[in-house]
């Protein structure tokens, strides 16, 4: 695992092991409107990804030790950030600057515009470009995802000390990983990319809420519940 002679910290290897396999999209066939079909297919995928994300969160070391209230709060504020780390990672190097939501759901700028996702396209491409320049390793991606959840600034926090410990353990794992690669400055760079991730996720949440409330796009129950929690 470590090119520099092993590391004591087991958090990142555990995150790599428990990283869920990417889901495939189920093409919606309820409408002839191709843009609406794209949107419904995407919302169905997001709903299933959310379900997987909740199961994944429970496996992050330290998460299940948090109070149920804090587990809920962190997920309610951080879920979109955690999901978008995956989308931006998959979209790296994609042809025609597509957004790769799944291997069988790749949307270019025109398709996003037609589906009412122009705003989302713009911010997600920006995030993807940033990660591309940083040349993230898989270890960094899984850690970034867990940190996005841990750092979601949920308010109020039920047990601040436990949440702080949860954050510290992930931060420590990242620092240990980067120092084992002799690239200590990367931990800071990764942390400095979190504001853009937060901003991108906020725009994504606004986009889906607008589509649902103003354009009556039907959403699955779990996705709607999590969007409403924002």
């Amino acid at each position: 695992y470590s090119p520099c002679g092993g590391t004591r910290n087991k958090v990142i290897p555990h995150l790599l092991l428990t990283e869920p396999a990417p889901l495939a999209a189920n093409q919606d066939e309820s409408t002839n409107d191709s843009s609406l079909r794209t949107l419904l297919t995407l919302c169905d995928l997001l709903n299933r990804e959310l379900l997987v994300l909740i199961g994944w969160a429970k496996q992050i070391p330290g998460f299940s030790g948090l109070s149920l209230v804090d587990q809920m709060s962190l997920l309610q504020s951080g879920w979109m950030e955690a999901l978008l780390v995956g989308v931006a990672w998959r979209s790296q190097g994609a042809a025609r600057e597509e957004l790769v939501f799944a291997r069988n759901l790749r949307l270019d700028e025109g398709q996003c515009q037609a589906a009412g996702l122009a705003d989302l396209y713009e911010v997600l491409r920006h995030l993807t470009a940033k990660y591309e320049v940083m040349k993230l390793s898989p270890e960094e991606v899984v850690t970034l995802k867990a940190m996005a959840l841990a750092n979601s600034d949920a308010d109020p926090v039920d047990c601040p000390d436990s949440v702080q410990r949860f954050q510290d353990e992930l931060h420590e794992a990242l620092q240990e990983y980067e120092s084992s690669r002799r690239e200590q400055q990367r931990a800071g760079r990764l942390l400095m990319s979190l504001p853009l991730l937060r901003q991108t996720a906020d725009r994504a949440v606004q986009t889906f809420l607008r589509l649902h409330h103003h354009h009556r796009v039907p959403l699955h129950k779990l996705l709607l519940e999590m969007l409403d929690a924002k």
Binding site: L51, I54, G55, L68, Q76, K221, L222, E225, D228, A229
Partner: peptide, 20 residues
Amino acid sequence: KEKHKILHQLLQSSTSPVDL
């Protein structure tokens, strides 16, 4: 927590079926 019923259920149990 009625408003966040599904998340609550999913976190409490990994096995109980949830209406999505």
